[in-house]
C-alpha cells in the first residue's frame, strides 16, 4: 500500500511553477544591486584596515545578497503598484511568473542567509548594519513610507546609503566619520535623483497612487527642492577632501562633479511648466547616475593610490 493513497488537487490556485532561475534573479533587482555592490566595495577598500581578500569577497557577496533580498521583499509587497506602472509591470510577480508567496519566502531566506553569513564569517557590526538596512528598506520604506508620504524616498534613501558604511564596518569593525560622509553623499543624492525620474514619470506614480513629490507638492515645488538638495550635495561631496581624508585630486574632481550636478539641477529649476518632453529632468537623471559612480570611483582611486604610497614607504 502506498503511503499516499490519494492525491487530489482541490486548491483552485494550485499551479506548477514555470519560473526560471532568471526570474528569481530578477527579484534581486540586479541593477540596483550593482550600485550597492560598488559603493560597499569602495567603503571596504577605502577603509584604513586591510581585510583578507577572500573575506572581502564574502562581505561584498553578503551585502549583494542582502540588498537583493530586500529587493525581493519589495517586489512581494509592491506587486499591486508594480502592475500598474509601465516601468515595473513586467517584473516577475506582477507578470505572474513568480507568486507573491514565492517572492516573500525567497526574500526572507536570503535576508537571513546574508546576515548570518556576514556575521559569522566577517563581523557582527557589519551584519547588524546589513540587517537594519534590509529592515529599513523592506518595512520602513516599502510598507510604510512609500504609500504614505512624499518624503518617502528622502527617508527611505537611507537604506541605499548604508552599503559603504557596511563595507567600512566589515573591514574595520567600526563606524567612522569618513564612512558617515560616504553615507551622506548617497543620502543627499537620492532625492534629486528620484525626483528627476518622478518628474517625467509622474503619470505612472499617480496611476499607482504613490505620493511622489511632483504629484503631491506639484512640479514647481519639486524642481525647487531638487535644486536645494543639489546645493547641499555638492559641498558634502567635497567634504572628504575638506576634512583631509583625500588628496586635492579628489577635491578638484568632486568640486567639478558637484558643479555639474548644480548646473543640471539649475536647468531643471528653469524648466517651463509647459515642457512635457522634460529633457532637463531626463538629463539630470542620467547625470546623477554618472555623478554617484564617478565620485565614488575617484574617491576609491585616491584612497588606493595613498594606500600604495604608504605601503611603498613614500
Amino acid at each position: 500500500m502506498a503511503l499516499v493513497d490519494h492525491t487530489r488537487i482541490e486548491d483552485a490556485d494550485f499551479r506548477m511553477s514555470e519560473a526560471t532561475a532568471g526570474d528569481f534573479f530578477a527579484l534581486l533587482k540586479p541593477r540596483v544591486m550593482s550600485l550597492v555592490v560598488f559603493t560597499a566595495f569602495v567603503g571596504l577598500i577605502a577603509a584604513p584596515v586591510t581585510i583578507n581578500p577572500f573575506l572581502a569577497v564574502i562581505a561584498i557577496l553578503s551585502v549583494a545578497i542582502g540588498a537583493g533580498a530586500s529587493g525581493a521583499l519589495n517586489m512581494w509587497y509592491d506587486a499591486d503598484i508594480d502592475a500598474v506602472m509601465t516601468r515595473t509591470a513586467t517584473r516577475p510577480v506582477p507578470s505572474g511568473r513568480v507568486t507573491p508567496g514565492e517572492a516573500l519566502s525567497f526574500g526572507l531566506v536570503l535576508s537571513a542567509l546574508s546576515v548570518i553569513t556576514l556575521g559569522v564569517l566577517v563581523n557582527w557590526l557589519s551584519a547588524s548594519l546589513l540587517a537594519f538596512t534590509i529592515f529599513f528598506y523592506a518595512v520602513i520604506y516599502t510598507m510604510w513610507l512609500k504609500r504614505w508620504t512624499p518624503q518617502n524616498i528622502v527617508i527611505g534613501g537611507a537604506a541605499g546609503a548604508f552599503p559603504p558604511m557596511i563595507g567600512w564596518a566589515a573591514a574595520t569593525g567600526s563606524i567612522s566619520l569618513e564612512s558617515v560622509i560616504l553615507f551622506l553623499i548617497i543620502f543627499l543624492w537620492t532625492p534629486p535623483h528620484f525626483w528627476a525620474l518622478a518628474l517625467f514619470k509622474s503619470d505612472d506614480y499617480s496611476r499607482a497612487g504613490v505620493p511622489m513629490m511632483p504629484n503631491v507638492a506639484g512640479e514647481a515645488s519639486t524642481r525647487r527642492q531638487i535644486f536645494a538638495y543639489a546645493l547641499v550635495l555638492a559641498p558634502i561631496g567635497v567634504l572628504p577632501w575638506g576634512l583631509g581624508y583625500t588628496t586635492a585630486v579628489y577635491g578638484i574632481v568632486a568640486s567639478l562633479l558637484g558643479a555639474g550636478f548644480v548646473w543640471y539641477s539649475w536647468k531643471v529649476l528653469r524648466m517651463s511648466d509647459a515642457d512635457r518632453a522634460m529633457k532637463p529632468a531626463k538629463a539630470l537623471f542620467g547625470y546623477s547616475l554618472l555623478y554617484l559612480f564617478a565620485i565614488f570611483a575617484v574617491y576609491l582611486g585616491d584612497r588606493l593610490v595613498e594606500h600604495a604610497l604608504n605601503l611603498g614607504g613614500v
Binding site: 493513497d5 492525491t7 506548477m16 514555470e18
Partner: peptide
C-alpha cells in the same frame, strides 16, 4: 486507487523545474 490523480508537467514546466534545480 482508480481515482488517483497525478500531475503531469508540461514541457515548459519541466524545463523551468530543471533550470531551478540546477541553480
Amino acid at each position: 486507487m482508480d481515482d488517483l490523480e497525478l500531475v503531469t508537467l508540461t514541457e515548459r514546466q519541466r524545463k523551468a523545474r530543471r533550470n531551478r534545480s540546477i541553480a
